[in-house]
């Protein structure tokens, strides 16, 4: 067995150079590892191949066809599915609704998450209670969140309508009017996201070294100046990470939409994933739904790539 990968050490090597050489190599890797590699990696590759790689290619393939009602390709149409989608006002409306939803969710989640984290990071009596409460929505699954908020937004008996009644405000039909329905879905999603976002940002804030604040306070920085010139730059990598995760999550939203509005009213909350579901499994247009899937995948891949690029470039301080 050819055991050594590293070349035999030359005599009379400067010692520091020898050490750095060894470090750069890291672990000694052996050439006879093929059997192990197969055993260790095989199961994962099989699963990923069957349920990630193959369906990716299959979706691409299907998106170029018309299909019958069980999803078998019938007529090759080339890019016509895509052209049809991108020129249809219904799909454009769905893209637009998704954009509004995603931007609303990401912006509100980050701003509120940062506010909560900033509030909770200062030492005060009883702050531990607030920290626990702020992270609580992390334990909430999508259908529980949907049910809680469905009740809050429900007509006449819901919390908002009752408060509105009390204050003699005009009644808002939250889930049956396009604008308010979008607002309601965004609010619910943000609430559901907050626990996770809070925990991540809170952790990042705690890791900012205290002397940086002390130094800036002595150098004459006010609290708001500190926030924008010390806190934000220090946690910007985490902020970026959080925003990408939230953004990708928002693009993939399905459960909340399904339970609260089912894409309505009047397709106002018919987001991209929900359309895939409707076109494929309710209408049986698998070819068109596949094209929609590809568009969705491309968008999400772009944002994920962006995140990788950023994380790669970023060096730990």
């Amino acid at each position: 067995m050819q055991a050594e990968v590293t070349p035999a050490p030359k005599p009379k090597v400067d010692q520091s150079a020898a050490i750095s050489h060894k470090r750069a190599k890291g672990y000694n890797l052996h050439a006879g590892d093929k059997y192990y590699a197969f055993a260790f990696l095989g199961p994962s590759l099989l699963v990923l191949g069957t349920f990630v790689f193959y369906p990716m290619l299959r979706t691409l393939y299907l998106s170029l066809f018309l299909t019958n009602n069980v999803g078998r390709p019938t007529v090759f149409v080339g890019l016509k599915n895509y052209i049809g989608l991108l020129t249809s006002s219904a799909y454009q409306a769905s893209l637009q609704a998704t954009a509004i939803y995603v931007i609303g969710v990401v912006a509100l989640t980050l701003i509120l998450g940062l506010l909560l984290a900033q509030l909770a990071v200062k030492k005060l009596a009883g702050i531990q209670w607030f920290r626990t409460i702020f992270s609580a929505t992390m334990g909430v699954s999508v259908s529980v969140a949907a049910i809680f908020w469905l009740f809050i937004f429900s007509p006449s008996i819901g919390l908002f309508d009752q408060i509105g009644n009390l204050l003699h405000l005009p009644i808002v039909a939250w889930l049956t009017q396009p604008g308010p329905a979008m607002t309601a879905v965004i609010i619910s999603t943000v609430w559901m996201n907050l626990g996770f976002t809070f925990l991540i940002l809170f952790g990042a804030l705690q890791m900012v070294p205290q002397p940086l604040y002390e130094a800036s306070a002595i150098e004459g920085a006010s609290e708001s100046y500190q926030f924008f010139h010390v806190t934000i730059p220090m946690i910007s990598p985490t902020l970026f990470f959080t925003s990408t995760v939230t953004l990708i999550g928002a693009f993939k939203s399905f459960g909340l939409i399904d339970l609260m509005t089912a894409g309505g009213p009047n397709n106002a909350t018919n987001l991209m994933v929900y359309r895939v579901y409707q076109d494929a499994f309710l209408s049986g247009n698998y070819g068109i739904a596949s094209a929609e899937s590809v568009i969705l995948a491309v968008i999400i891949a772009l944002f994920t790539l962006l995140q990788f690029k950023f994380l790669e470039k970023r060096v730990t301080y």
Binding site: F51, V52, P55, M56, R58, T59, L62, G71, I248, F251, K252, F254, V273, V276, Y277, A280, Y286, A289, S290, S293, V294, L296, A297, I300, A301
Partner: peptide, 8 residues
């Protein structure tokens, strides 16, 4: 790749 885009 989002799983949601590969359900079909």
């Amino acid at each position: 790749l989002p799983f949601e885009a590969e359900v079909i």
